[in-house]
Nucleic acid binder design. Structure first.
Lengths: 342, 342
DNA sequence: CTGAAAGCGCTTACAG
DNA sequence: CTGAAAGCGCTTACAG
């Protein structure tokens, strides 16, 4: 059972043709008669031959490798879905991903150089949360795609969530449930997600002729911030019947605060929508949290598609920003406002 | 600024030596005088030369690539830390990771073949939660390391969490806080995590001469299961003062149930310890959940070390299972039992 | 200590 | 339509 090394040579010998013909037949290049092509393919399959990608990469200077550089990607739950989406798309296109992880504020040139030394055809730079970045100098903009990150100074294609659309989706869902007094709880951070979601909220409220009520608290946007924000809001003269929280963590803080108030229940007395679809939280809360899921996997897929286009077409770099839509995930935290609405 | 292709040749010419000598000087092989070696290294650095890893892999048949096959890794929050740990260790050792993602019950041979065609030196198979697997036939056991997964039929080195130790850690922490009646909430699933943590609980309880009280509910081990389990327990004649929950999600269910019971607070009336350190949940609960963190990053690191040892030493395959310890993360859910303890 | 030469397994002009 | 030959950029015996 000892396997002699199985190369293109073995296939050529078994098929009684030259290695050139085998290469042509298997890669669909050059002119090969159907008869020969089919026979070669069959024999290759029978032998279990798979071309050595290293050799083919060296000769053709095309590795079909994409370097995936992520920033603390595994520290944000579910942001790893960017990677999963990218990997799926890569597999479908016959590409492989080589990954490195970098820290937010440390430019690790050595790691990036290692990726470049692997002759990757393209580079994807993925942040773990939508923010403004400055692409490290090592990245050639003509070979790079940005995901969930925006660099105003680059010409690289960029894929981000449609933050405004997310704000619209969440707010409209509450409006359609019958709410008129809708609070937006958010934080003071200056990132695209904060500004975009708020903008979407404003658009819907203004289109409906409703008054915007925004409570902005110091970040980070966690459960404590959510609890603090809702507590502040409850000091006001009138009570809103619905809350659009910047994210699920803040929404969780709202739940925690509300449960302490006798006689107030979700969704009967207050409806809530979050953003992120942190499933482990959103599904475990009572009632389940209605939220807007971020398009992580879709962004990863799209980034790979754009990367391939970039290096296969050798097209001139063309700055573009694609905003992918979020998706409303309905659970149980939204209902019509109580009739006892003041 | 057009960069002519910068290869080992360019360095050789600039240094006035042969490519052989450059290769030797840069790789620390063969005999090269210190003077020459240092000069070559300096010139290579000045030129910004980095060897083409593809060419070097083809010639030496060593790619310094590890194939990282993960099972739904990004769907379990923080399990991605296995990947982060592995990537860090790989970077330190001059290796790169190529990743593919497979579904639990679908053997995707094509994907694995693609990895093999890349001539990876080693393979790491990582599950997203500690369980029994059967390694797909495509994997050569002599080139594979298993992480967070155990295959009784393989000779591959295996790295898993020390589940018994985790049970011991959690239970002992409660005992040391003064608790005597400690409930273990768990599920009926037949996976190593369930059996191991329960075993650790039993060991401590028996060593202390305490009575084991285990509530086992149907899985999955989520918040609903935790709420159900604690509700069942509360029907009993006596009340425990502490709970060791199988995981943080079940612990979250306990919080939700307890908050509904007037006059009962955590940790004053009941202390809780979970497992997983799902930070987004554990830190957001009130009070913060004391839990045992799984050694995800450490397992990833260790897997890479074992993989390197495997393919560098060509040592005969030697079955081994390493159990890495969990780590107690104290927040606010454990206190001494109330004096009014019945 | 140093270098000329072979060769890793493919792909790609090029000739026939 | 098919094949002989060159060559991708390194590493590695081997000779000097």
């Amino acid at each position: 059972m000892r396997q002699e090394k199985l190369g293109i040579r073995s296939v050529a010998e078994a098929a009684g043709v030259s290695v050139t013909t085998v290469s042509h037949a298997l890669n669909g290049r050059g002119k090969v008669s159907d008869k020969t092509r089919i026979r070669v393919q069959r024999i290759a399959a029978e032998l279990g031959y798979a071309p050595n990608r290293i050799a083919s990469a060296l000769r053709s200077s095309r590795t079909n490798l994409i370097g995936f550089v992520s920033e603390e990607i595994a520290t944000t739950p579910y942001a790893g879905l960017i990677l999963v989406g990218a990997q799926e798309a890569a597999a479908e296109l016959g590409l492989m991903l080589m990954i490195i992880n970098v820290n937010r504020d440390t430019v690790e040139d050595a790691q990036i150089d290692a990726l470049l030394a692997q002759q990757v055809d393209g580079l994807i730079f993925a942040s773990s949360s939508h923010r403004i970045v400055t692409l490290p100098k090592r990245f050639d903009p003509a070979r790079t795609v940005l995901v969930d990150a925006y660099d105003p100074g680059t010409t690289s294609p960029t894929v981000v969530p449609d933050e405004v659309g997310i704000g619209v989706l969440a707010t409209r869902h509450l409006v359609e449930a019958g709410h008129r007094r809708i609070l937006h709880l958010t934080v003071e951070e200056d990132v695209p997600a904060v500004g975009g979601r708020e903008e979407g909220y404003r658009q819907v409220m203004e289109a409906e002729g409703l008054e915007c009520e925004i409570v902005r608290v110091p970040g980070p946007a966690d459960a404590a911030a959510g609890a603090f924000a809702i507590a502040q809001a409850r000091r006001g003269p009138d009570r809103a019947t619905a809350v659009f929280a910047f994210n699920d963590e803040m929404a969780m803080g709202v739940y925690q605060e509300v449960v302490l108030v006798p006689g107030i229940t979700i969704p009967h007395d207050v409806s809530i929508v979050g953003v992120d679809d942190l499933r482990i939280v959103a599904a475990a809360l009572r009632p389940g949290l209605t939220t807007v899921a971020l398009p992580h996997a879709a962004m990863g897929r799209r980034a790979v598609e754009l990367s391939v286009r970039q290096f296969q077409q050798d097209a001139p770099p063309e700055a573009s920003v694609e905003r992918l839509p979020g998706r409303l995930v309905e659970r149980g935290s939204v209902a019509a406002p109580a009739v006892t609405f003041s």
